[in-house]
Nucleic acid binder design. Structure first.
Lengths: 129, 129
DNA sequence: CTGTTGATTAGAAGTTCATCGAAACAGCCG
DNA sequence: CGGCTGTTTCGATGAACTTCTAATCAACAG
């Protein structure tokens, strides 16, 4: 409900009439898009969660039981469980109980979306640079 | 200095001798790698900084002067300056003063590295899934 | 030199958030 | 039932965050 919502298409112009900046070549991230994407990056902006993701992905079959994850850290099971919950609530992983053990696997779509956003072919971050 | 440093190659085995998890198909992220990468993601895990990056990238020529960035937000110039500093210290952007104005541009290499890490072709996150 | 505009720094307030563990609980199996 | 795996709840500690005001630095115009 402020100037954030308005697309800024033309270059800024100073008092003397000289433009200080180039015009936009593409539509930048909107405020709402940014607000939606930031928590995804925040979820992986932690060394433990980054390694958890990596451990899950590196297991054959793409899934891992929690016992293997807790064994890889010097953290207590509740702490691991907490980090897994953060990743799951962000939509980055999913889980299922099979008998005694609980298995986690990665949701590739969400990670791919994040990767594409900051990748060289991104329409909003690569621009024409 | 603990079990984190040891690569975990074989599957965990429970007391009865039955494996609960599949073995590793690739080498997961090391503790030091994760510690090095997490701050990069933390730098972009903020809606304002995400939009700043996008605004810089979307400008023709790939660079933008600060005046154009402050105009796009309802924040004071010092606040914008702070967020730009965070991005710069993470290595994601660079800047240069040219006369009256200061220009910022994106460092594509760092973003590409982050993108590749979480992308579908990543050796540590895509695994064999 | 002086005044103005653009941008950064210094400092601080305030809130929020995060990490982690101890203890208790829930689902499964023999 | 008892033992095991994993999760939740709760809490305490502490750190980190965003954002502002005020002051400072840099470049330019007159």
């Amino acid at each position: 409900m402020s100037k954030q919502e308005l697309p800024i298409i033309d270059a800024a112009v100073d008092v003397s009439g000289a433009a200080c900046c180039a015009p936009l070549a593409c539509e930048p991230l909107s405020e709402s898009e940014a607000a939606e994407l930031a928590p995804l990056f925040k979820a992986i902006a932690d060394p433990v969660r980054l390694r958890l993701l990596s451990l899950i992905a590196c297991h054959e079959g793409g899934e891992t039981c929690v016992c293997d994850l807790t064994a890889a850290f010097d953290l207590t099971p509740p702490t691991i469980s907490h980090h897994l919950k953060v990743l799951k609530q962000a939509g980055l992983i999913d889980s299922e109980r099979r008998g005694t053990w609980v298995y986690y696997w990665i949701n590739p779509a969400v990670l791919a979306r994040m990767s594409a956003l900051i990748g060289p072919a991104s329409p909003v971050l690569a621009g024409t640079a």
